[in-house]
Design a protein around this nucleic acid. Sequence first.
RNA 1: GCUCCGGUGGUGUAGUCCGGCCAAUCAUUUCAGCCUUUCGAGCUGAAGACCCGGGUUCAAAUCCCGGCCGGAGCACCA
Length: 492
Amino acid sequence: MLEHRKEKKPKKGLKELPNAVKGKVVMRFAPNPNGPPTLGSARGIILNSEYAKMYEGKFILRFDDTDPVNKRPLLEAYDWYIKDCSWLGAEPDEVVYASDRLELYYEIAEELIRKGHAYMCFCSSEEFRILKASKKACPHRDTSPKENMEWWRSALDGELSPGSAVLRIKTDITHPDPALRDFGAFRIVDVPHPRVGDKYRVWPLLDFESAVEDHMLGITHILRGKELSDSEKRQKFIYSYLGWEYPVVVHWGRIKIHEFGRLSTSSLAKAIEEGVYGGWDDPRVPSVMAFRRRGIQAEAIRRFYLSLGVDESDISVSLENLYAENRKLIDPHAKRFFMVKNPLLVEVRGAESTVANPLVHPKRTERRKIEVRAVDGVARVYVEEDEFKQLPDGRTIRLKNLYIVRKEGDCFYHVKSEFVRGELKKKKIKVIHWAPEDGLDCLLRTPEGDYRGVCEREVANHVDEVVQFERVGFARIDCVVKEGVVAYFAHK
RNA sequence: GCUCCGGUGGUGUAGUCCGGCCAAUCAUUUCAGCCUUUCGAGCUGAAGACCCGGGUUCAAAUCCCGGCCGGAGCACCA
């Protein structure tokens, strides 16, 4: 019996890439830098570079910055991408700027014109759309290569105005799929490009630029969202005209993050411009830099995307999964502190001055010191206003690591200071966190908005660390300003 | 309208190509219990899925047909 079944091995990590040869794989991530990388971009960055690593290949970061108008590149964003790639552990082996390579595209365009595969079309987009819908060729489709070349040159020379003409690739105007009928390759733009200024007036469109670049860079595998799946079919026309071989393509489906909805750079840019968000690293924005600021680890994002895998089905996933990964990474090290949101200063009557000594971390032995002074038998602590108000009158609770108190009216009465192991559980005494009267003001910036609070003074000595505010959640201490501490909330 | 793609617990995911070892993997989530002077973490247990209908077959999550649902593309955007 010839049994050559492929064995069923439960695979860990990414699936094999078709036709991938170790050492020969070249992959790229090709964003338009019209904003910073978002969590969505991180998927492309991580997956492409991860596969490149898996096959000991090459990972290229290519800026597809060929639209100075509608998706105008942001000059700062180029560096944002480079920085975020390396932060994500996806250091590019090479960085390519499409806006530097217009001459190359022009050469290829001219070759296609000469061979009769491209023509200058003077229809308005509206006219062309109608013709295309009825599978009719436009009147310019049969112009001779020679005449096309003349028109093309006059476009390059600036003799044609924006919108008056477009260079089209001939495909099959009767193709059953309307998406594949003669597509645009170049258009005329007279808006200066942020990087190269007004050096060029004829800019390629994605399907042309990307097609040429992928071939020139020797890309072997393309991994991208399925919204670009028709690109492959369109670009293959160019490849066949030029005798090139198209890379292997793998698509992933659309991702929707429960907490943020769809990730669109342009809509975020608009919201930032309108002042809805403070900037690209506002904690309410799903940019990589915002996640970093909140203390989300690059490794957590990487694991998150690796666990989603590559599949064409659309997914709608909760950030809980990302947070769970992050928690596993930071919890072993995050120091614990008290921070009270929406604080209410409450008197503790019958108290003496004391020092609380909570553990810095449950798995370690160091303790921190929080002084609580009492004057004439009255101490004051901050607790969460809501929590205090919801406490029934007469209820006994423990202020964590401090003492047991009983609520009466709008203040607490000291009950006892000794801590007896097991007592809280046995008597079902609730334990709440608190902050000292002389604590620091703390601004906690979260994806749901900002909170004012008070935290231990020690927090100010941990800038740039990810800490855990007990019973509140993990946060990264961003900075200390004269008003107090600014912290960015990560997650519970 | 035309073309293409997808559908496994609440959410992701493995398994689908090459049918049996799948009364379906792992993670997350939720709920209990233990532990910890905290939320979390950890440990233990529980909950929860093959879109529907036919067909092929000894055998279907897996192959075929039809339906339903969801998504994408049809730009002088990427």
